[in-house]
Design a protein around this nucleic acid. Structure first.
Lengths: 159, 159
DNA sequence: GACGATTACTTGCATATGCACACATATCAT
DNA sequence: ATGATATGTGTGCATATGCAAGTAATCGTC
């Protein structure tokens, strides 16, 4: 008797992603808790480390698929805890270079064992191969190609 | 010459999810912008509608894979804008029943055309079948089975 | 029928994010 | 040089979330 809308599950891809992210973030954050880092914070520190040099804020934001302003805010706690340092680029004084401190590197090391446990939990539960496939799918969603295709379709707006 | 950690991509499933969610949320929110709802807000209204009756806050939070406290906060703007109403359950005065108002239903209707465009953009870019598969994968990640399996593995803690 | 345990929320505090607007610095055409 | 532009950030405001501690209402039990 119930109308369809009252019983069917949500088909929204965005909602599905947000739900899953809430759940998984809770699990990873819980695992990381002993080291005092959140997943987001660790991902920022790791991205800086992977850059091999202190990246300008904009580049870091882009790598993290994050708004510049949002990143500025998010860096505050890390800066306060002396895990990172923000310097003005002498080459171009508009740039802010985000650098890991010694404490930052140490914190990464400290968090890695905890992260591995969470990651192992995920891969055990979801499957190693399926996890890799999922990451690949999500990477595509984040790519320029995806965004372009998305907009090409929905730009059938009223522009 | 670069150390591996400086060049390899992140393998963190949680980070991958968060990145993708940021991107996709931006796209959907942008599409929904004309109606004044965010994806999260729309997903809340839709979940209430699907319930078929005003659900207690806790049940709503669970359906949305969201913390109760977080949901309480998130409902504030919707309540302020009179899209929902929160009533005390006469059957059990501890419960808060979250009900759609007429304006809420109207807002859902208003947002649906916009949502469909965003959803179509996603499905065009990612593929209809792959989208369905992705949602299914994400649904599993959200399930109790997944959480149980995740914890079984990572509970090799020091408890 | 009062007391302790349980359940359902609310609040306060902190981080996570995005957007629009204000600022500073760099570039470039004239 | 100089003003118009372009670029890279910082800030303020609003929503999104989670957790811990406090509060209210219910229940089970003696």
């Amino acid at each position: 008797m119930a109308r369809q809308s009252e019983t069917e599950k949500s088909l929204c891809n965005c909602t599905a992603l947000r739900k899953a992210t809430r759940r998984v973030s809770q699990l990873y954050d819980s695992a990381l808790e002993p080291c005092g880092l959140r997943t987001t914070q660790r991902s920022i520190l790791m991205q800086i480390a992977r850059s091999g040099r202190p990246p300008p804020l904009g580049e870091l934001a882009e790598a993290l698929v994050m708004d510049r302003g949002a990143l500025t805010h998010t860096l505050k706690p890390l800066q306060r805890d002396r895990l990172i340092e923000i310097r003005i680029d002498p080459e171009d004084r508009r740039n802010r270079l985000v650098a890991l401190t010694a404490a930052g590197r140490k914190k990464i090391a400290e968090s890695t064992a905890l992260w591995k446990r969470a990651q192992a939990g995920f891969e055990t539960a979801f499957g190693v191969a399926k996890s890799a496939a999922l990451r690949e799918a999500l990477e595509f969603v984040v790519s320029e190609d995806f965004v372009a295709a998305f907009n090409r379709r929905s730009d059938a707006k009223h522009a």
